[in-house]
Each structure stands twice: as C-alpha cells, then as structure tokens.
Simulated scan of single mutants.
Amino acid sequence: MSRPPFAPFTDRDVELVSAQLGRPARDVIGIAARCVCGAPTVVATRPRLANGTPFPTLYYLTHPAATVAVSHLEANGRMAELAAELQADPALAERYRAAHEQYLADRESVLAVEEITGYSAGGMPTRVKCLHALVGHSLAAGPGVNPIGDRALAECGWSPEVCACAPDQRGA
C-alpha cells in the first residue's frame, strides 16, 4: 500500500501540528493520519526541507498523547526486545524489510533526495531505533505494513480511535 499523494491539508492542520510539536511545522506536504476527532496524528514532511536539509522522516508522529505513550515503551526497553525478536525471526525480518522498501517508495514518490537514498526511518530495515517513527509509519500506511510499528502501536496504550486531544487541539 502506498500513501502519497496525501489529501489536502488546511492552515488549521498546520497550526495544530505546530502546537503539537511546540515549534512551527516545517515543509508539511500532508496529514498522513488523524485522530478520530480529525486532529493530525502523523504529518508527512517534504524529503528536502526548504532550507535544503535532507529530511528522511516522511511520516512524523506529532500527536502528544501518542508520542508520550510510545516514549513509555522506549523508556521501558521495548526497542531492545523488538530488536532481539527481529534478529531471531526471519519472517518478521522479511516483513520489516518490506516495510522499509514501502517507506522508501512512498518518500521517493514525493521527491528523490540523493543524500538519503536507501535510508528510511526508525532503524529499518535491520534495527529498531525509533518507535515513534515506526508507529508513525504504521498509522500512515495502515495495519499490516510495518510489523514492528504495528506491535508498538498495539502495546503503547494509545489509539487514534479514542480521542485524547486537548479541547483546543481537536480537529474539525
């Protein structure tokens, strides 16, 4: 499954993402996933920022409750456990490699950036480095694409199907 092109985003979406991040959102090209209330959950970012910097993370998890929940998994050592599972399970490793390839295809369909060719996000295809990036990919691509992101999403205790947004941060 490939996500781009993304549905149009609004100025309100960019305001919400900026508030979620606590800084101005940069080079937004779409909202790749939303909370049930409509608030942005994953932003899609241009692979080369306006200032020329290569930016490999196409799918960036922005929702505050989601980032906190995933941070708890990381703080409790889940990345190391998932990395060990990845090394021990060839079928899981193959599905994770396929997720990496899909991520690259999505990003390159937006813009090919030579400096980041072959690099996806979250440690793919052989490591588990950032659960935030992997959960962002799972939310953007849908279930079944990124097995590690899917596991982290299922385990983190947060769901886009249950709104945890602050009242002033809810979508339309």
Rank of each mutant, 00 (worst) to 15 (best):
L82S: 03
D89M: 02
E81N: 09
A75I: 07
L73G: 04
L58I: 08
L73P: 14
A75M: 13
A65K: 14
L58M: 03
P56H: 10
T67V: 15
A80S: 06
R78M: 01
A84R: 15
N76S: 01
T62N: 09
E81I: 13
T67S: 04
H72Q: 14
G77D: 00
T57Y: 09
T57E: 05
H63C: 00
R78F: 03
H72M: 06
A93D: 02
Q87E: 03
H72G: 05
M79L: 13
E81G: 15
A65P: 12
H72F: 10
L73S: 05
E85V: 07
A83H: 15
P56C: 01
A83V: 10
L86G: 02
V70D: 02
V68Y: 11
T62H: 12
Y60V: 12
A83K: 14
A84D: 12
A88D: 08
A93C: 04
A65I: 09
A84M: 09
H72W: 13
V68Q: 15
A84S: 14
A69M: 02
V68E: 02
H63I: 07
A83F: 12
A65G: 01
P90Q: 00
P64D: 00
T57I: 10
R78Y: 11
A93Q: 10
R78E: 01
A66G: 03
A80D: 08
M79G: 05
T62A: 01
V70T: 09
P56I: 03
E94C: 05
A65Q: 09
A65E: 02
L61D: 01
T57F: 06
T57L: 05
A88V: 06
E85P: 06
L61Y: 12
E94Q: 14
M79K: 15
T57K: 13
S71K: 14
A66T: 11
V70R: 13
L86W: 05
E74F: 11
V70Y: 11
M79C: 08
A69E: 01
A91R: 12
L82I: 10
A69T: 10
